[in-house]
Structures are given as structure tokens and as C-alpha cells.
């Protein structure tokens, strides 16, 4: 187990390096020098300051040297200072935004899993029935509906018409004076729509995947054997089929993180949630290069960690890897 883990972690390093390389390349596609932006912010910046900045970012050096310098700083998680007028360290800005985005996405992921699982199983067990077709249509509707449109319609219906739910943000005004329970309820109410929309939109992939792996497993010999032994259908499906069908799903979960983080740009903009997606979009539009690079690297890094965790879960769940492998 431990050697396997070490091997997996060792494999991360080249991937991390690749992530930084691609990030660096993407940003340097843009015309103009990054330092232009910062110096342009202050009209009367002296030639000396400009030179200092150029030296700081190593812009007077060839590209590969610049990359090396940048890499050396980000190893220490120093992504430089934001070009925005507040001029704060990029890492600070990201740090205050990550928890929101990450926890929202993890909740959405759990919920997605919780809802997609029964849908997938039901659809597989009742393959080609009306129920299967209905569920298929339902999950695809979620996928096919432009998220911002669905979000606005729900906002209008539940927020403006029925007045059941708040429209946007994370907390009501004055929520800090509420009791813990009421505070939590208030937060939950705010999160219901964004998380609901995110979950609905991502059901299709997972539930269809579960359906097809279930179908595959159900066709296997050992299931036939289990049935032949006279076990109840319920037991066959839940105990034997599901366990085997779930294994590949774990990997899929790890890989769905980037999609969710990417989608957070839309949710956070429309629901006014101060997360990383919103920060990234603002950064991109304002050409805040250090911020954009920082978020790209960290976003991709998070996915790496997610994949590693998924792999670990997989190896814990699958005895073949635990004993035989690595």
C-alpha cells in the first residue's frame, strides 16, 4: 500500500510541472507584456520602478528563464501580487475564495452522487421500461438546459413569485446576529438554488455511467450464478452488482471536479457568490495575469489531489490493487 502511494505521489510531480508549463504558455499567448498592465495603472510610474518590476517578473530575460523564475516562486506558493488596484498577494485573494467554491462543489458532488446512484440503478434494472426512458429524459433535461437560464427561472419563481427563497448571496443581512441554528438555516436557504441547479445539471453524466456499468455487471457470469443460487433480486443488485459497478465510478468522481469548478463561474456570477469562479472571471476580464495564473495552477492542482484521493479510495476498495499491485 505504502509503496503504491509513494509511486502515485511521485507521478504527480511531472503532472504538476506540466500544469505550470501549460498555464505559463496560455498566459503568454496574450499580446503585450504583463508588466504593461501594472505600470499602466499608475501613469507617473518612474522608469526605475518599471525596471524593478520587469526585473521582478524577469521580463528582461528569455521566456524559459522567466518560466524558471516563476516556477521557483510558486513552489513556495508565491504567485505574486494582483494587478488589481488593491495590489494584494494573489495567494491571499485565492485563499479567501477557495473554501466557498470547494465546499459548494463538494456538497454538489455528494448530492449528485446520492441522486445519480438510485437513478442509474433503477434505469439499469428496469432497462428500456417507461421508467428508464423517463429518468433518461429527466437527467438529460438537466444537462441540456443552459444553467444560467434555469437559475434565473428558478430565482424568479422561488424568489420573486413565491418568495420562498432568497435570490442571491450567501447570507441574509444581519445573519451574524442569528443563533447558530438559524444562521445555518439561512445559509442553507441561500445555497438551495445554486447547489440544486449545479446538481441537476451534472446528474446526466454520472447516472448514465452508473446505468451502463450496472448493465455490464448484471450481464456477468457471477451475477447469473448469484441469481441461480436463488438470492433475492434486491440482494443480487445491491450487494453483488452494485459493489462491482461502483468501482469505476470512484475514478469518475475524481475527474468531475474540474467540470464543477469550471461551472462555478456561471453559478457564482449569477448567484453573487464570492467564490473562485467569480474571482477568476473578474481577473481574466481585467487581465490580472498573476491572479489568472495562480487560479489556473491551483484549480488544476486541486483536481490532481482529487484524483489522488479517488485512486486511494479505489485501491482501498479493490483488493486486487491492495494486494497484488505496486
Amino acid at each position: 500500500m505504502v509503496p503504491y502511494l509513494l509511486k502515485r505521489i511521485a507521478m504527480l510531480l511531472p503532472l504538476l510541472l506540466g500544469i505550470t508549463l501549460i498555464t505559463f504558455t496560455v498566459i503568454h499567448l496574450a499580446p503585450g507584456e504583463p508588466v504593461e498592465m501594472q505600470t499602466a495603472m499608475s501613469p507617473k510610474i518612474t522608469a526605475e520602478t518599471r525596471q524593478r518590476l520587469r526585473a521582478y517578473y524577469g521580463l528582461d530575460r528569455p521566456l524559459h528563464v522567466q518560466y524558471g523564475l516563476w516556477l521557483r516562486r510558486i513552489v513556495r506558493l508565491d504567485f505574486g501580487r494582483s494587478f488589481a488596484p488593491d495590489n494584494r498577494p494573489v495567494m491571499d485573494k485565492i485563499k479567501e475564495r477557495i473554501p466557498v467554491t470547494l465546499s459548494l462543489n463538494l456538497i454538489a458532488l455528494l448530492l449528485e452522487f446520492g441522486v445519480a446512484l438510485p437513478i442509474g440503478i433503477l434505469a439499469a434494472v428496469r432497462r428500456n421500461s417507461l421508467l428508464d426512458k423517463g429518468l433518461t429524459l429527466f437527467v438529460f433535461l438537466g444537462f441540456a438546459m443552459p444553467t444560467f437560464w434555469l437559475a434565473l427561472l428558478l430565482m424568479y419563481f422561488f424568489g420573486v413569485k413565491l418568495e420562498w427563497l432568497p435570490i442571491s448571496g450567501l447570507h441574509s443581512l444581519g445573519s451574524n446576529k442569528l443563533t447558530a441554528g438559524a444562521w445555518f438555516l439561512d445559509l442553507a436557504k441561500h445555497l438551495l438554488l445554486p447547489i440544486g441547479v449545479a446538481t441537476f445539471g451534472s446528474l446526466a453524466g454520472l447516472s448514465r455511467y452508473i446505468r451502463s456499468t450496472m448493465l455490464e455487471v448484471i450481464g456477468q457470469d457471477y451475477i447469473t450464478t448469484a441469481r441461480a443460487k436463488g438470492l433475492s433480486e434486491r440482494c443480487v443488485i445491491l450487494k453483488h452488482a452494485l459493489r462491482n459497478a461502483l468501482l469505476p465510478v470512484i475514478t469518475l468522481l475524481g475527474f468531475s471536479l474540474p467540470g464543477l469548478i469550471g461551472g462555478s463561474v456561471i453559478f457564482e456570477t449569477i448567484f453573487a457568490i464570492p467564490g473562485m469562479g467569480q474571482l477568476f472571471f473578474m481577473g481574466v476580464m481585467a487581465r490580472d495575469y498573476p491572479l489568472v495564473m495562480g487560479i489556473l495552477v491551483i484549480g488544476a492542482g486541486l483536481t490532481l489531489v482529487g484524483n489522488l484521493l479517488a485512486d486511494l479510495c479505489y485501491s482501498l476498495a479493490d483488493p486486487r490493487i491492495r494486494h497484488g499491485g505496486g
Binding site: 434565473l152 430565482m155 432568497p166 435570490i167 442571491s168 449569477i270 448567484f271 453573487a272
Partner: peptide, 17 residues
């Protein structure tokens, strides 16, 4: 309040936010 989307802003107004 920071509300980046104008459609959301208007709904907040209508809902009293």
C-alpha cells in the same frame, strides 16, 4: 452588495433584497 449580474440585481430589487 456586490451583485455581478444585472438580471439578478433586478430580481433582488423585486424580492426586496
Amino acid at each position: 452588495r456586490l451583485i455581478p449580474d444585472s438580471a439578478t440585481m433586478y430580481m433582488e430589487l423585486k424580492a426586496g433584497g
